[in-house]
């Protein structure tokens, strides 16, 4: 297939900013507003978390958001239908766990989510070896593979070769929002990966502030920010000026990355 996601991301002459939002948190209506704010504040794509009951790669913040979204009755079908109707005009990437996709039916998941405006799929508990399981969705969605700071150079090469859309480099060892970024180790890994890929290279996990985004952004093509954003939503969503606060926060990540883009 044509890697639409990689094409659209590679075409940008700036550092890439991908915010993550758990679908349906704090409720579907507010969630959709937040996606539009992210789009309007210059997000290059938006990662949409499809909640799972047992999110083993997630720290307490994303666990809470997933749990609450499930309590709100969110299902994969509702995610696809709602976003399909919303027509947001920004590339969407689904982030979830293997059993959600497996149970939905991999081929059907690819078809339904492409029709809903998704271009990519990240499965947090599917390493490179599990990639063949997602093949039935690969015609419809770019299957993004994660690399980690303890991934061997040989594996990095293989991951670079197999990943579509972009390569997702996890910044250190830990669950989402609970990661110690291995700043000393990352540049070397980026170099190894660069030798094998032409698609963008993004760093995620532990990008806790615009300052961190700026320093991590310097060594990659951009960053993914999840927990920092979800924490603001969890802590402040019931305040009257919440949407303004949220908009300013998203803007501050965008600005931090734009500063280094111009260098």
């Amino acid at each position: 297939m044509t890697d639409h996601l990689a094409e659209s991301l590679s075409g940008k002459q700036k550092k890439l900013f991908l915010p993550y939002l758990t679908f349906g948190y704090p409720d579907v209506h507010t969630f959709l507003d937040l996606v539009r704010i992210c789009r309007d504040q210059g997000a290059d794509a938006i990662e949409i978390g499809i909640p799972h009951s047992d999110p083993v790669a997630d720290g307490p913040v994303l666990q809470h958001a997933s749990y609450q979204a499930l309590q709100n009755g969110v299902t994969p079908r509702i995610v696809a239908e709602t976003l399909g109707k919303a027509g947001l005009g920004v590339p969407l990437i689904a982030m979830t766990y293997g059993n959600i996709v497996y149970h939905y039916g991999v081929e059907r998941f690819g078809r339904d989510f492409r029709e809903a405006g998704f271009q990519g799929l990240i499965v947090a508990d599917f390493p490179l070896e599990a990639r063949p399981f997602l093949q039935p969705a690969a015609e419809d969605l770019s299957i993004i593979i994660l690399a980690s700071t303890n991934t061997s150079p040989e594996r990095l090469a293989a991951i670079g070769k197999e990943s579509r859309g972009f390569v997702y480099l996890v910044s250190g060892k830990g669950t989402t929002g609970n990661t110690h970024i291995e700043t000393n180790h990352l540049p070397q890994m980026v170099n190894i990966l660069r030798a094998h890929i032409s698609i963008p290279l993004l760093i995620g996990f532990g990008v806790s502030s615009p300052d961190v985004a700026r320093s991590v952004g310097l060594i990659a093509d951009g960053v993914i920010v999840g927990t920092a954003i979800m924490k603001v939503i969890i802590d402040h969503h019931s305040e009257p000026d919440f949407r303004d606060q949220f908009s300013r926060m998203i803007g501050s990540f965008r600005n931090a990355l734009d500063e280094i883009s111009r260098r």
Partner: peptide, 21 residues
């Protein structure tokens, strides 16, 4: 088989960071 299957079941469905250990 290569990826730790026992018949049609098993495997290693874990975050990448656990593949090393």
């Amino acid at each position: 088989s290569l990826y730790g299957f026992m018949g049609e079941f098993g495997g290693r469905f874990v975050p990448e960071v656990l593949m090393y250990p």
